[in-house]
Design a protein around this nucleic acid. Structure first.
Lengths: 359, 359
DNA sequence: GTCGATAGGTAAAAGCATTTACCTCGATTA
DNA sequence: TAATCGAGGTAAATGCTTTTACCTATCGAC
């Protein structure tokens, strides 16, 4: 396969036609009438030569490269969100596009450079993915280039894709209430710190709001709240341990993420409490971890893949500015102890869950 | 920023020179003599217009796109190996290249398609990354396109990047022997199944060989071996549990990966054995999990980022065919109980570890 | 016989950067 | 004085595809 790549001119020559004709036929232009024979000859020539158009040359004329720039701060290659890029890759592929991936490490200079670099390569659009909520500084981008913000909002660019955290938060509460928990639920991890909004995902605030709204709908509230800045296993361990040592009326732990929950598991185990039998734990993210734990962790997942797909879909559509909220899946495993008594509240929570699932 | 992108012709016009001159100056061609004034005018014009060359047009002439195709079966976006792509991205960036990422899901058709797609976009080279050891079917690629195989070998393409599993295996043994283990070490996970070589990473065989060779160097052997097909936490749990229930002379578990080790932790805990005090556990991968566990898991890591970097580096170099083995880092945490007695064997193992680390 | 359609095409420009093969002008050399 | 040389450039071709603006032959109608 060392021989040079065939060009459109080669195809035309072999078909005994002009490049114009070959191009028009191959691109299926309407309002052109070429003989059936010409069609056949062109297609035969293409097959015989294994011709594939040179996208660089094509992009030069058409300004469309069938390529999308995927610029992320740090999200693309991190366990936490490789799903984002996988979803984007998948959707791009079905749309005949390829992804040019760049990681900026949240450095503004590299961000500007990244935009320049993908623009130099004539991308049809740019997806900015981020874990940080800071108002995305986005370098100048020509109006003709479509932009979608993934996992953040931006005043500057209208189109963004986010998990539907408010609904997700509500469902987490439903899970516990449907199992019979009312006045024994503690919240672990919520940080009311002002800075929280700056660096934590833009959407955590909505998650918490969903949590509280749903509880309020039921006339309930958290009986304890332990907040912390980092959300690592050791934090979960520390918070849960201190909580359980301090009071004995807690029978459900709602953790802000799975890593906190992992730490909480250890704290419970050490205290002789079996998760899923003596105490309930629910959390967020559906980290890989959640499936490893025993019993399996019930969690409201971050729909990374769906978000990635939606971003590409939105980019390639002519959708108008706005937020696209992606449904968070509720993943039931075995970390919640199911109460047998059926109270009206439990009934209501169950119904809300069912309605959400079947939506 | 809605105005059209400036072209080289615009720059030339503004500088009062010809496009030829502008091009020659900007590309710093040797053996051309232009006045200092011409240089200045061109650079001023570039700055003023914010000119950036159109890489598509450039690639058309030069056949160099400063873009690399990164084609993976499934590895690119998986927790297990996002490091590969991160390393590649990083190295590509420092070399002024961008990565066009495609995932094929290990499907031959999609693989062929992927190669076509990146070739259409004039990539300067292709990196094939894979988790599967099957002889990579690689579609026809023009000789002029450089290819590097990442995490696998290929008879067809000479250049490949692999973790140095043999040395890694030896170091794992050193860790245990240096801590005083001799006749109390069990191996968990090794599958002698013939099919193992077909689907498991190409290099696991070398890992096992390193393990056995190092033990043999010390005149030792595993006192038990539990093998299984999958390497998930539940397998580790099952194997460790059965082993510990069957015999009581085991004081060290060498697990083929961290997930197995995670399961083994649970089995030990259930039996009242404290890891790092009553029993030692060592394993491979340095999964994120390894840092979460308590005590932290001592493990020999897969050097994903370094491998990714090496792949790009190799691709852009003029290196000759061959395997490039990347050193596996030994990550010491707290899962190995340190013996106090210093035997000659312990001394020797320590020395080997030290030599490796300082290399 | 001539006019007009229409079927079936094609020549050439455009899009942008690179590169080869010149060209001009003044100074130097023989 | 004529030939040469170097400094400082430039015109035009090239790479490949798309697209606009034609072109030619034939057939039917009048």
């Amino acid at each position: 396969m060392a021989s040079k790549r065939a060009t459109l001119a080669d195809v035309a020559r072999l078909a005994g036609l002009s490049p114009t004709t070959a191009s028009l036929i191959l691109n299926g232009k309407p309002n052109t009438r070429f003989s059936a024979d010409a069609h056949r000859r062109v297609h035969d020539a293409v097959a015989q030569l294994g011709y594939r158009p040179n996208m660089g040359a094509r992009a030069l004329r058409t300004d469309r490269s069938l390529t999308i720039g995927f610029i992320s701060d740090v999200v693309a290659t991190t366990r936490f969100a490789s799903g984002l890029i996988r979803g984007a890759l998948e959707q791009a592929q079905t749309a005949g596009h390829l992804l040019l991936v760049v990681e900026t490490g949240d450095d503004v200079d590299r961000e500007v450079e990244a935009v320049g670099a993908v623009l130099d390569r004539q991308v049809d659009g740019i997806i900015f993915a981020t874990m940080r909520a800071r108002e995305l500084f986005v370098p100048p981008i020509p109006d003709s280039t479509r932009v979608v913000i993934l996992n953040a909002t931006s005043a500057q660019f209208g189109l963004s894709v986010l998990p539907d955290e408010e609904q997700g938060g509500r469902r987490a509460v439903d899970l516990l209430v449907a199992a019979g928990h009312t006045d024994d639920i503690a919240l672990i991890g919520q940080s009311d710190d002002v800075e929280g909004d700056l660096f934590r995902s833009a959407t955590v605030a909505r998650r918490v709001q969903g949590l509280r709204s749903e509880l309020a709908d039921f006339g309930l509230r958290f009986v304890a709240e332990e907040s912390c800045w980092e959300w690592e296993p050791e934090d979960g361990y520390r918070l849960a341990a201190s909580l359980l040592d301090r009071r004995d009326d807690i029978r459900a732990l709602l953790c802000m993420n799975d890593r906190l929950a992992f730490g909480a598991y250890q704290a419970c185990q050490e205290r002789g409490l079996t998760v899923g039998r003596d105490i309930s734990i629910a959390s967020f993210d559906n980290d890989e971890l959640a499936a490893y734990l025993r019993p399996g962790l019930t969690t409201v997942g971050l729909p990374h893949e769906a978000m990635g797909r939606a971003a590409v879909e939105l980019l390639l559509s002519d959708a108008t500015p706005g937020e696209r909220l992606i449904k968070m899946p509720v993943v039931k495993r075995a970390s919640i102890v199911e109460g047998e008594r059926r109270s009206p509240l439990m009934q209501l929570a169950s119904e809300r869950l069912a309605a959400y699932d079947s939506d």
